[in-house]
């Protein structure tokens, strides 16, 4: 982000990183304004300045900063994610915890699915094994052909929701001290 016009290179802000403290130049800006607002108002301010000194602009430092609500916990979040980046022992512990809970979740949805499949297969085989005449359309058809689908969807839905939650908790873990 930079401030255009004759004010030159010094006027460019360091809004993106925001670690630098606020220095004057932009007057009357409330701390909680968004970056865009500051940009607009800052520009107006400087044009006024140019008029005041009659065409010979004094290169004033304008530092535009972005007020960041989450700035306070930022330094805490970085090192924890770095533990994983840098493959430290602690990072391995974090990742192992995440993998474990995701794996448990996958087994929690696939295990019952396998069991239910085997059970209904056994049921269908048992009811049709001895038949040698015309087989009727009965419970087995409804069980395999219709009932299975909503159950599969339910399993998928619950899994996706739980997986989202596990990931949210992991993000929290990395953010928290």
């Amino acid at each position: 982000m930079s401030v255009p016009g004759p004010l030159g290179p010094d006027a460019s802000g360091t809004g993106a990183d925001g670690d630098v403290g606020r220095v004057g130049g932009v007057t009357g800006i409330d701390d909680v304004r968004g970056v865009d607002e500051i940009d607009d108002i800052g520009r107006v301010d400087e044009i006024d300045d140019v008029d005041a000194v009659g065409g010979s602009p004094a290169p004033r430092r304008v530092r535009v900063t972005s007020p960041r609500h989450g700035a306070a916990d930022r330094p805490v979040a970085r090192p924890r994610a770095h533990e994983i980046d840098e493959e430290t022992a602690l990072g391995e512990v974090y990742l192992a915890a995440l993998l474990r809970s995701q794996r448990r979740l996958a087994l929690l949805v696939l295990g019952p699915t396998v069991l239910a499949t085997l059970a209904s297969l056994a049921l269908v085989l048992a009811t049709t094994a001895g038949d040698d005449g015309g087989v009727s359309v009965g419970l087995d058809w409804v069980l395999v052909g219709v009932v299975g689908y909503p159950l599969m969807w339910l399993g998928a839905f619950l899994y996706a929701r739980a997986a989202d939650r596990v990931e949210d908790e992991f993000v929290e873990l990395l953010r928290r001290r």
């Binding site: 970085r78 990072g91 990742l95």
Partner: peptide, 15 residues
């Protein structure tokens, strides 16, 4: 390890 981390961590985490 870093690769597995990338596969399993949400995109929001700044790795």
């Amino acid at each position: 390890l870093a690769m597995l981390a990338r596969l399993h961590t949400p995109e929001r985490v700044d790795l």
